[in-house]
Amino acid sequence: MKTGNKNKEDRIENFINKVIEPFESFFESVLQYLTNILSFALIIAVGLVLGHVLKFLSLRLFRLMRIDAYSERGEITAMLRRGGITEPLSSLLARAARWLTVFVFFIIALGALQVPRVEQLLEEFFLYIPNIIVSVIIVFLGYMLSNFLARAVLIASVNAGIRASGLISKLARFGVLAFTVSMALEQLGIGKDTIVAAFTIIFGGIVLTLALAFGLGARDAAKEYLESRLRKSEEPKKEAKDDEFTHL
């Protein structure tokens, strides 16, 4: 009789355990998840505070380094103004330092959540980061180079007395920018073949258009130009016909 009771108790305990176990497991999971969320929130909070401190310190450092004056001289300020950004470069960089810190802490915090899918996405994202950095650098350098070359072309063509100097300069800028964007997109692996093909077609098209425009549309001008060039090479002394004085 005693044995029968014991078995009954065991079964009841077993049943209770089986009922409670999922609850316990659920409770543990919730507790674990809450701990993760708490870690996530804590890391984010630390990131925000550290970001704020870093912004303050880097702003002081950049101002001490007179980075605004250098950016003014290096035409970075003018470039930013053209893009509608009126904030000084020191402030921009300080803000970038802050948000970069927050971003890094956010990534660390996401890892603390221990969600497998998120972890996989993070891994992929980290592998992609170098491409993004290289692309940003390409775009930045390309933009700077396009500005520099456009201005150099503008000055040279103005000094040569060419009326369409502005247009020539814009074409130079557009050419460099188009090349830059295609390089950056290629680096990111976006539409690799399409971009190369598109760039080739556009570039080839421009050259063909110019050749046709010059050869057909401005046939007389082309003829005169070539004739004058040939005549000049045959009679070098005629070069000084317009201005015969020496500047030095």
């Binding site: 103005v158 000094n159 007395g161 060419i162 009326r163 100097s165 016909k241 317009d242 201005d243 015969e244 004085f245």
Partner: peptide, 15 residues
């Protein structure tokens, strides 16, 4: 000596 003043002024105007 010959000078082309109009061309000089034109370059200034383009500039």
């Amino acid at each position: 000596i010959h000078v082309n003043i109009e061309r000089m002024i034109e370059t200034f105007i383009i500039g």
